[in-house]
Each structure stands twice: as structure tokens, then as C-alpha cells.
Computed example of a mutant assay.
Amino acid sequence: MVWFETILVVLTLLTGAVWLLDRLFLAKRRAARNGLLDEEPVLVDYSRAFFPVLAVVLILRSFIAEPYKIPSASMMPNLLIGDFILVNKFTYGLRLPINNRKFVSLGEPKRGDVVVFKPPHDPENNWIKRIIGLPGDRIAFQGNTLSVNGVAVTYQTLGAYSGRGVAMGTESASLLQENLPGKPHKVLEGLDNIVGQGEWEVPQGYYFVMGDNRDNSEDGRLWPERGADGEPLPNHNFLPEENLRGKAFLVWLNCEGWFCKDGFDASRIGTKIQ
């Protein structure tokens, strides 16, 4: 959420500036008046106490790892509603908070990575999907079969899905292993409801993303041609590289409902995101 990042950055800069100003100038002036330090002003006292905490949180959240909560079923069966995940913020490079501008490049996304990003038609919110197409790839999805550069991906049927979420429209879904080149993973496939058919060629500087719950995912196959302001979105099916937030790598908690009213699922703790 941009507002949280903005508040965190502003508070960190403000408390840091107050603390530094006092240390360099104001404390010396107070001491010069009578040879003793007067009691610190409340603002200085709070700034000195909170600045290190805010600075550590800002550095960790912006450049190391950031927590998110999964709100939808689009990445089932691998990510469930209520999963709290950690996202690696430096895998693809270091980015400035608020504007997300990359200033150090450390790597490129790989096919099969599960990534958090801001979609072009909803830039105020963070979404999570799997990278299917890299720049220059030709992607097709026909009849529940994915093809990459003209080669159909193979599948192994694992049976009917019986995990959590069967009461949310997945009771008729099949569980399959999709052998995506370099990153085999599980997907859900509906028996009757095939959505998002088409073919796409990924432009340079963009990625094509899909959810693992193939018939219940608002992903690149279905993204609108225009934004909320009615303006056309060029390359609207694709994720711009500059919109990436990081790579999801770990589930550290699962808790459904407000204040975890529906309880914890301890079995999800420590689950690696494949």
C-alpha cells in the first residue's frame, strides 16, 4: 500500500532530521546556556527513540523482505486465502520506496517465479501471480493447455482437488502438475469452466503472468484494455518490469478472518513457495 510506504518514509525522515538537528546544534546551545543539559524537548525525545526503529523497519521492508497477506483464491492450490507470505525485495534489484524505481539491478525474473506486483490497471494495489512468459516468448492457452513458444506444456493428473477451499467453487476442480519449463508446479483446472483462451507475444520489458487456479484468476489473459480513468493501456495483457515488487518465497503464517477469528493453520508455517 502506497499510503503506508509514504507514511513510513515521511516519519523516518522527520524523526531522523529532528534527532540530527538536535545532536548537531540544539543540544550544544542548551549546554552553552548554563553548562548543563536542559531537559530534552518532547519532540526530540520521541524522535531519538523512534528513529532507529523506523529506519530499521524501512530498510527491511524496502530492500530485504516485505510481508503480504493472500486475499483471494487465484493462486490455489499453492497459496491459500489467509496465507501470510514473505517477498524477497532484492532478488531482482533494489528499488526506492514509494515510486518503486530500480536503482541497482541484481537479477531478472525467471519463468515460474511467483511474484508480487502492481498491475497496470490497478496501480494502487499489490497482486500476486506466476510468471509464465518472459520477454519475447509466445504464449498460448487453449482448452486448458498452456503452450510456450509453440511447445505444449505437459501435465500429470493428481486427482480431484480435496484441500482447503472446496467450498469456494473448487469442488469440481482437478489437481494437476504443470510441467512448466524450469519450474513444475501444481495447478487447479475446472472441468467445465475454461476461461482466458488466447495467444500472446510478450513485448520486451514485460512479462506474462497467470494464476495457478486457472479458471478463477484475473490475470494477464483477462486484464482490461483501459484503466480506471478510461485511458487506454498499451500492452494491457502484460506486466511491466517496473511494476514488480519482488519474489514470493515463504509462507510464515496462515490465519483466516478478521483477528484470526477462523483460527490458525499451523501446517502452513514455513511452507516454501514453489
Rank of each mutant, 00 (worst) to 15 (best):
M1R: 04
M1V: 10
I7G: 05
I7S: 12
L8Q: 04
L8P: 08
L8R: 04
V10Q: 03
L11R: 00
L11M: 12
L14Y: 01
T15G: 06
G16F: 09
G16P: 05
A17N: 11
V18Y: 12
W19D: 05
L21P: 02
F25S: 06
L26W: 12
R30G: 15
R30Y: 11
A31C: 04
A31D: 08
R33M: 02
N34I: 12
E40T: 11
P41V: 06
P41E: 14
V42W: 15
L43R: 05
D45F: 10
Y46F: 14
A49Q: 08
A49D: 00
V53M: 15
A55M: 10
I59N: 09
I59Q: 11
R61D: 10
F63W: 15
F63G: 03
F63R: 07
I64S: 05
A65T: 05
A65D: 07
A65G: 14
Y68G: 02
A73Q: 09
A73T: 02
M75H: 06
L79G: 00
L80K: 06
I81E: 03
G82I: 06
G82L: 01
G82V: 01
F84W: 15
F84P: 03
I85G: 05
V87W: 10
N88P: 03
K89Q: 14
R95E: 12
L96V: 08
N99H: 04
N99T: 02
N100E: 11
V104Q: 10
S105K: 14
P109M: 12
P109S: 09
V114N: 00
V114D: 00
V114Q: 02
V116H: 07
K118N: 04
P120F: 07
N125P: 03
W127L: 08
I128D: 01
R130E: 02
I131Y: 02
I131S: 01
I132L: 10
L134T: 07
L134K: 08
P135L: 14
I139E: 01
I139L: 07
A140Y: 02
F141N: 00
Q142V: 14
L146Y: 06
S147F: 03
S147W: 05
N149T: 09
G150L: 07
A152K: 09
Y155E: 15
Q156G: 13
Y161V: 10
S162Q: 00
G163P: 04
R164I: 02
R164K: 09
A167P: 01
M168P: 07
G169P: 04
E171H: 07
S172F: 01
S172C: 00
L176A: 14
Q177Y: 07
E178V: 07
N179F: 11
E189V: 09
G190T: 03
G196K: 14
Q197R: 12
E201F: 02
V202Y: 08
Q204I: 10
Q204L: 13
G205E: 10
G205W: 10
G205C: 01
Y207N: 13
F208Q: 09
D212A: 13
D215C: 01
N216V: 05
S217P: 07
G227D: 10
A228C: 11
D229M: 11
P232Q: 15
P234F: 11
P234A: 15
F238V: 09
L239A: 12
L239C: 13
P240D: 03
E241K: 01
E242A: 12
E242H: 13
L244Y: 05
G246M: 05
F249A: 08
V251W: 02
C255L: 08
E256I: 10
C260T: 05
G263V: 01
R268S: 07
I269N: 02
I269P: 04
K272N: 06
I273V: 13
